[in-house]
Simulated assay, not measured.
Amino acid sequence: MCAVGGRTDPGAIVAVAARALGGRGRAVGVERLRGGTRKGVYRVRVEGGRDVVVYVWGRAEHRWPEAAVEREGPFADPDGLDLFLGAARVLEGAGVRVPAVEWVERDHPGPGVDMAVVEDVPGPDLEGLLARDRRAGMRVVERLGPVLETMASLRGSGWGRVSGAVRGEGACERLVLERALRDLKEGARRRPDLAAVRGRVERGVVEAAARVEPRRRYGLVHGELGPDHVLVGAGGEPVLIDVEGTMFFDVEWEHVFVRLRFGDLYRSLEVPGLDGARLGLYAWAQRLSLVAGPLRLLEGGFADRRVLEGIVEAQMGWIGAHV
């Protein structure tokens, strides 16, 4: 792997960007952007043209410990160029804005990584905009509501990633229950305070699952849609990023996470017809996932330790209040 400090060689990134530009300006610099635990995200400065962003998938860019990576099922590791391209194609076809793909290069000579050159959306991310100018951010949130409604209205023949690489059998709620119990077991192994209430938490999760009625109706979900995964386009429109996890699944799974991340702004994002029993089960599952997942990353030497520790503490507070 050709990388600098665990990152892809900037020269390789500039070379790919230059091929994508095809003479429309000259690539003159590379800046690594924050975020991303499964791919590298780099802005390439362009002299005489507009900047571009390069996504890089490769071992040096993947920060999850190998033992913590899920390989099967609806929550399998959302990593790779094909998942990105498949999701972008389906979302764009539904009228959902994502960064436009300008160039794709597989197995780049030298670093041996996959890369995609995409447009550099000029605006900030929604999280930053809300912190800086809440009124302006709320206007974007209001435009995001119809996007979520459009996605919820799309129907898949089964659950799984939109690329078709993962198609499964079994009810979504059963899969979520099994995963929640695994996350509880792993979290309790790493956190004595969770171990102390493990029995009560397990009862709460199992009882929530028992209230869910069978259903076979799947909508399109992003899977991890927080304000940090929404950029603001030049016209103030929401632009979804980190879309590799996009799949057909119970829409309630998406909306539990969206409510958690957007807080009181969620009233502008709720869609009609959500199942309360599923919301109850998925709330437990999401919270347990947000304990176990960060704890796994911390074992892998993730740099932003305080951020992950804060996520875990927030979820432990919720769990403590519900047992």
Rank of each mutant, 00 (worst) to 15 (best):
L279N: 06
E142Y: 07
G5L: 09
G11Q: 14
D242V: 03
V205I: 15
V323A: 09
G29E: 15
D264Q: 05
G170E: 04
I241S: 13
D275Q: 05
A18K: 04
F248K: 02
G86Y: 15
A208T: 10
E299G: 13
L129H: 06
E31F: 11
D51I: 10
W57P: 03
V90L: 14
V118T: 13
E213Y: 04
E186V: 05
D228V: 01
R296Y: 04
V205W: 09
G23W: 05
S289D: 09
M316S: 00
F249D: 07
R198G: 14
Q315Y: 00
R161K: 12
G226M: 05
G280L: 14
R200K: 11
A87H: 11
L85D: 12
G273N: 02
R71K: 15
V256E: 01
G280V: 13
V98C: 15
P146W: 01
A12S: 11
R191C: 13
E142S: 13
R182Y: 04
F249K: 06
P124W: 02
V251Y: 09
H255Y: 00
D82F: 06
D9H: 08
M247T: 12
A136D: 00
L231I: 07
G317C: 09
T150G: 03
G6W: 01
L231N: 00
R189Q: 13
V291D: 05
E237V: 02
L265A: 12
G300T: 00
I311W: 00
G93L: 01
G48H: 00
V46E: 03
R139E: 15
L177W: 14
L231K: 05
G164W: 03
A285R: 01
V230A: 03
R106K: 11
F257D: 09
R155S: 13
G25Q: 09
R287A: 08
R287T: 05
P146K: 01
A285L: 10
A88R: 07
I319H: 01
G187A: 04
E127M: 13
V221N: 15
F249P: 01
R211A: 15
G317Y: 00
W64C: 09
W64V: 12
D304R: 13
G112T: 08
A234T: 10
E202V: 04
R182G: 02
R190S: 06
E313T: 06
V206F: 00
R26F: 07
W64I: 00
L295P: 10
F248A: 03
A20M: 09
E47G: 06
R211K: 15
L281S: 03
R7G: 09
R97E: 09
V206Q: 05
R139V: 02
